[in-house]
Computed example of a mutant assay.
Amino acid sequence: MSLVMFDLRLNYPLIGEEAALIEHCIHSMPSNELEQRLLLPSWSGALQDRVLAAQWLGLSGEESISICMSAHHALIALAFAAELRGATIVTEDYTYPGFKAIADLFEIGLLPCETDAYGLVPDALKALCAQHSARALYIQPTIHNPLGILMPLQRRQEIADLAQRYGLFIIEDDAYRFLAKDAPARFYDLVPQQTAFIMSLTKPVSPALKIAYLLAPPQLAPALATAIRLTSSGASALLSGVASKLIHEGLIDQLIRRKRQEAAVRQIAAKQILVDLSLQSHSTSYHIWLRLPEGLQAPQLERALRKHDVAIVSGEEFAVEQHKGSQYIRIALGGEAEQLRLEQGIRLLKEAL
């Protein structure tokens, strides 16, 4: 939470229980285990941590799991391991700005694909694949950032079929999957032989718990281990141990349930304030995609809100195409720890509209 600004920009939801849980995990760690976890980690993560992660993620074995420092780190390691430098990758027409930055770093060309109320449009993807030599598809199918869409299973199956037909490697970034109670099958479950799935713990737990699980086809494991070694010397074994303890004791599942409940409360409160505006969101997500009234542009609104110490994100930051998105903003509901401050910030936004 910002001390001077109403933060409707960043989205790392904290509900006040995280510090005590992390403290418990460290203090209850046997001294011999703690000593081991202070040593240089295995490049892809300790075996016992990967086994627990595999069980939590519903896998039959740990062979396909690598432990990274964050989703960003997983994406960078994957770009190295899958040799994606200079490749063309399809993504939704609005996508995660962090991936856009990583694409620039690797000179990756992004092809924006049309979306509808159910996510990526299969016919649009088919047309792009017929016209371009795309290597991969970067997709956020579960509570998309920023659109808030939860893609249904049938749509996932259609896209998986197209990926197989055109040889697209699927990069499935599921940062917000934990907020969807009964999310459909992952692309990794549908086409595991050509999918990489990324699950970070920075949002389910805390931005300080820099641990992410990367599931990828086994043939990429050696290259991923090398990429992780070169980019980080391996994720922190201590933080990985904290994550494993949270999983083993069921604490992370309890925390996730609480965060879902809190998200639902915040969605209701925000929509009551923003009534009669054009909104798009998921009922248990921590963000809202808002179409601005006719004639108002996001940069103009950002400047006006800055005078009232309110921070928002312009849709331009998410747009894959240049000069697009200025008629939208994303409102983050997880940047303010106190709901009262969140509601105050949203009211100031409503007044500016």
Rank of each mutant, 00 (worst) to 15 (best):
M1N: 13
L3Y: 07
L3H: 13
F6Y: 15
N11R: 12
I15A: 07
A19D: 12
L21C: 02
I22E: 04
I22R: 04
I26S: 08
H27D: 13
S31K: 15
L34F: 05
S42R: 10
Q48T: 12
L52R: 11
A53N: 00
L59W: 03
E62H: 15
I67Q: 00
C68W: 02
A74P: 00
L75A: 06
F80Q: 05
A82E: 07
A82W: 01
L84P: 00
G86A: 12
I89A: 04
D93W: 05
D93Q: 14
T95P: 03
P97F: 06
K100I: 11
A101S: 08
I102P: 09
I108L: 01
C113M: 08
D116E: 14
A117M: 13
V121F: 08
V121N: 13
P122T: 03
A130M: 14
Q131Y: 01
Q131G: 03
H132N: 14
A136D: 04
L137W: 00
Y138V: 08
I143P: 02
N145F: 04
P146D: 02
L147C: 09
P152H: 03
L153F: 06
Q154A: 14
Q157L: 13
E158P: 01
I159H: 04
A160P: 05
Q164M: 11
Y166N: 05
Y166P: 01
L168Q: 06
F178H: 01
A180I: 09
A183W: 01
A185C: 12
A185E: 15
Y188S: 09
Q193V: 00
S206R: 06
P207Q: 09
K210E: 14
K210I: 01
I211V: 15
Y213W: 13
L215F: 05
P217Y: 10
Q219E: 14
A221M: 12
P222G: 14
T226A: 12
G234M: 07
S236A: 13
A237F: 03
A237I: 03
A243R: 00
R258Y: 08
K259Y: 05
R260H: 06
Q261T: 11
Q261F: 07
A263G: 01
A264M: 13
V265N: 11
I268M: 13
A269I: 10
I273P: 04
I273R: 06
L274R: 12
V275L: 12
V275D: 14
S278I: 02
S278G: 00
S278W: 04
S283H: 05
S285G: 15
H287A: 05
P293N: 11
G295N: 07
P299I: 13
P299K: 15
L301S: 02
E302S: 11
R303A: 14
A304S: 13
D309A: 15
I312V: 14
V313C: 13
E317G: 01
E317N: 11
Q322E: 14
G325I: 03
Y328V: 10
I329G: 03
R330M: 15
A337E: 15
E338W: 06
L340F: 00
G345T: 09
E351W: 05
L353I: 15
